[in-house]
Simulated assay, not measured.
Amino acid sequence: MKFIVYSLIFILTSFSAFSQRSLKDSLFSEVIYTNIKSYSYQANQAYATKNFAKGKELFRNFIQEKVANKYLDNFKAKNLNGALVSINSYFKKPVILITYASWCVVEEGEIPALNELAKRYHDKIDFVVLFWDNANKARKQAKQFNNKVTILYIDERENMFASEVKNLKHALGFPLAYYIDSEDRIIDIKKKTPELLRPKESYIDAYVQNYNEFVDGLNSLLINGEAINEYLVGK
């Protein structure tokens, strides 16, 4: 009988340890910690030689091979009332999480496209914008978004957030769009192409391009549901 009990304890303990290791290995922060130096070196080399196509390819490969299907760390940010919000527990639907800073040059048409999609699909997807700024700057920037978009901010000067949270900003840069399913898995991350690297576009063309890019990402969150299937055509 003792042998059976000890065996059961050993099995449960081993399973618990294995589960903890598996979860740790599946976290976004762990993947970044393990792989970011190699990726950053190659990406910096590409951008230093103005090989933007190579830099874009390296980013896509890194996301698809290392980050996709890993779990977002359960981090906290503040809402515009100053209350801490836990991303993983507060949002129950799939999430598009876009990271900005107030000094970012946001492409014309990007925010209107996001607002329109939030208005149409907020019942299926939570639309969240995270500013790396203080409360005053975040509130000022929030005026650009409609009430279907949740605005959060992280002020690093407060020095109260864990290192894995900072990976959202410092590891891959910004602005970025994280597409996260209802189980907190990162399905995809898309980097916005700097406006200076794009050909000049009309407002309509910029709006259409941003709208369609967001639709692509949002459809990755609706694999088991109904696709949006509302691509726009520019004039």
Rank of each mutant, 00 (worst) to 15 (best):
H122Y: 05
P194S: 05
F131V: 03
F214D: 01
D205F: 01
D126S: 13
F131G: 02
E164Q: 15
R198M: 14
F174D: 04
D181Q: 11
D126K: 01
N136C: 04
K143L: 15
A162N: 07
R198L: 15
A177S: 15
H170D: 15
L176A: 07
L172S: 02
F161A: 09
K191E: 14
T193R: 07
P194E: 04
N159I: 08
D123Y: 03
L168T: 09
L172P: 07
K119Q: 13
N212F: 12
K124L: 11
N212V: 04
Y211F: 13
V208Y: 00
I187A: 05
A118F: 02
N136W: 05
N219L: 09
N136I: 14
D184H: 15
A162R: 05
N210C: 05
F145C: 09
F131S: 06
N167T: 10
L152S: 12
V165P: 00
H122A: 14
N212T: 03
D133F: 06
L172Q: 08
M160A: 14
L197C: 00
S202D: 03
E158A: 13
K192G: 05
M160V: 13
D181H: 12
Y121S: 00
L218Q: 02
V128K: 08
L172V: 08
V129H: 01
L172Y: 12
P199R: 13
V128Y: 06
L218V: 05
D181P: 09
D216V: 06
I204D: 14
N167I: 00
E183H: 12
L172R: 06
G217H: 03
L168H: 08
E156G: 08
E156I: 11
R139H: 13
I187T: 11
M160N: 15
N210Y: 04
I186V: 15
N147A: 12
A118G: 04
A118M: 09
D181T: 06
I154S: 10
S163E: 15
W132H: 05
A135Y: 00
K200T: 14
V208T: 10
